[in-house]
Each structure stands twice: as C-alpha cells, then as structure tokens.
Design a protein around this nucleic acid. Structure first.
Length: 200
DNA sequence: TCTACGATCTTT
DNA sequence: AAGATCGTAGAT
C-alpha cells in the first residue's frame, strides 16, 4: 500500500517549516524506499550558506524554479546530494536530505554500496544519494508525480532535535550557528548526532 | 581558459 | 589528518 504523494503545495513555504514536516516522510526511487530522518534547511533570502546566495547559475536553477522539485548536485566530485526545492517560484531555497532509514529495496541499496557487509546506515547526504541512485540528471524533476522520484506521506516524527548545519564553514557567523539542521530524536540514522540538542 | 574549492566519506 | 575526484563559479 503506497502512501499518498505529498502535494506540490506542501513545499510552497519556508524551507525551515518544510524541513520540520519532512522528517518521517518517505522518498521512493524505483525499488528503493527511504524514511527521512535528518534534514537541513537552506533558506531564502537571508542565508549565506545557500547555493543561491550569489544568484542564478546553471547548477542552482532548479532551486529558483517552482517548489516540489528535486535539486541534485555533485559534491566533492563524488557525492550526489539530494535536495527538495521549497518556497515560491523565484525564491531560491531547498531542504537537503542528510540521512534516511531504509524501508524498501535493501538488496539494491547493498549492491550500490559495493556489497559491503554489516548494517546499512544511511547517515550523511552522500550515502542517501548513493542508496537512491540519484544523480544530477534528476535535478529539476518533480517529486509529486508517480513514476520518477517520489515523496510519499509517512509517519510524522513526534520528537525533533536541532543543531547547526554541517560543512558550511564559509558562511557568516549568524548562519553558521543557526540551528537549521533537524533530526528525529533518538534515531540511529542521524549524522553528527552529538551536535544536536532537544527542541521544544 | 585557468584555478580553487566544496551542503562528503573513508581510511590512516 | 589527509586523500579521493570533478563540476562549478569566479577570475583571467
């Protein structure tokens, strides 16, 4: 029984609000289904860590477009980073998917991970992109239509923890320290968990 | 064109 | 603590 797709409208608000509500929802691509456990908001207009901080470029074009679409980019020459575009058309903002709990397609995930033994801990955005098999060719594709990459309604997170975002040392202090990273409390599928603290 | 570097992960 | 690995963005 596949959950219903989150409507386009779901994404048409501030990235921080969308980030909070994405925890517990599901991402599906082919056989692979993941439950979102950790996210980061890249907000508009005042966010010096945002890829859109310097305006429109070919890479970040999907972020400037309508909400409810994927923004995928290559990081450090090897990691495919999946974001979900938020806010309104013309407002460059998105939510980075940092960690997920695998719920379907374990076999495919394991193969993509090189057949390594042990538990499949999808902690960190590079691993999420790898498990889903996404790449930059999916950047700009809608998330609210059947057949491609889909975001489905899951079981919402009850308790949330927050902390500063990871890997943005270039940002201004007020954004560097802003607690715009959110995760499901006590989930094992969370990266840098020690830097998180309880939210209200 | 040229260069520096990154919303990372793994191994040492 | 450092290497892998390459597209992007800004400078030349």
């Amino acid at each position: 029984m596949p959950g219903r797709l989150l409507p386009c409208q779901f994404y048409a608000r501030d990235a921080l609000d969308v980030a909070r509500d994405l925890l517990g929802q599901e991402i599906w691509h082919g056989e692979v289904g993941l439950r979102i456990t950790e996210v980061e908001a890249y907000r508009y207009p005042d966010d010096s860590a945002n890829h859109c901080r310097a305006g429109l470029t070919p890479r970040n074009a999907p972020m400037w477009g309508p909400p409810g679409r994927a923004y995928v980019y290559l990081c450090y020459g090897m990691h495919q980073m999946l974001n979900l575009v938020t806010n309104g058309d013309g407002q460059g903002a998105a939510v980075l998917i940092r960690s997920c709990e695998p719920i379907a397609g374990h076999r495919v995930i394991r193969r993509r991970r090189g057949g390594k033994e042990g538990s499949v801990l999808l902690t960190g955005p590079g691993k999420v992109g790898q498990a889903l098999g996404v790449d930059t060719s999916l950047s700009g594709h809608p998330l609210y239509r059947r057949g491609g990459i889909e975001v489905r309604e899951g079981t919402q997170a009850a308790e949330v923890v927050v902390g500063p975002r990871i890997g943005i040392g270039y940002a201004e202090p007020e954004h560097l320290h802003a607690e715009w990273r959110l995760a499901i409390a006590d989930s094992p599928w969370v990266s840098h968990a020690r830097q998180l603290r309880g939210a209200q």
